[in-house]
Nucleic acid binder design. Structure first.
Lengths: 109, 109
DNA sequence: CCCCGCTATTCAGTGTTACTATCTACTGGT
DNA sequence: ACCAGTAGATAGTAACACTGAATAGCGGGG
């Protein structure tokens, strides 16, 4: 992945993952696979796990261990009330950014 | 500024500054003032100067020293050919992100 | 004259984040 | 016993925006 993409993901990736969790609970491996399908081809697995640990420690998600048929138990994350608040704030910030950038973007040709 | 905004700015602020420079040459103090008018109320001055040094070192901008009526000489930056290429790449990456995020954003109520 | 305010730039140190690379652990099939 | 696939954890690194301070030039007021 380009360095540009990497830097732009900082802060944004967290919002993306929380947005996914707002629609349904999910676990790390599943989220990584979904991101790759969506075109984030080179998201490292470790990145998603580390991100999930961070949001858990900040109390934005609830965690439940669910035994898996294959492999170790899954840690299924779901967005809690505080997480929803945080996600709302994320969308506000995101809208602010997209507004400013759309003004700067040259007319498409 | 919220920590959220700070983190989301990473990588994006650079694109914003380059976009400004693509429309006209400018110097650091001026860019900072403009950003503040646009609602980036708490952009630290040091941040913009550090960013300009980085893009200069990567050869994306040309620099010219221009004496100022008040205060020390200004370093006026302008986007060069390589900078334009880089900026195009930035817009592609930005479009990719906005596409993915617009899919995730809940229908506005 | 000297200090203050404004303009303008620079720099050292800090925290957060995504990356790389590696490691552990559990299951099923050969 | 071994291996592939699933699932998660962790140590170390690089990049970037922030804080806070310092530097420097010019004008005007006391």
């Amino acid at each position: 992945m380009s360095k540009q993409t990497t830097e732009m993901l900082k802060g944004v990736l967290e919002g993306i993952v929380l947005a996914i969790l707002s629609s349904r609970p999910a676990y790390g491996y599943e989220i990584t696979a979904w991101l790759r399908e969506q075109g984030f081809t080179d998201i490292a697995e470790g990145t998603v796990y580390a991100l999930l640990v961070r949001v858990e420690q900040r109390g934005l998600v609830d965690v439940e261990k669910v035994p898996s048929e294959k492999g170790p138990p899954r840690k299924v994350y779901s967005l809690n009330a505080q997480g929803h608040d945080y996600l709302s704030e994320f969308w506000r910030t995101w809208s602010f950014l997209t507004d400013r950038l759309s003004q700067l973007q040259p007319g498409e040709k």
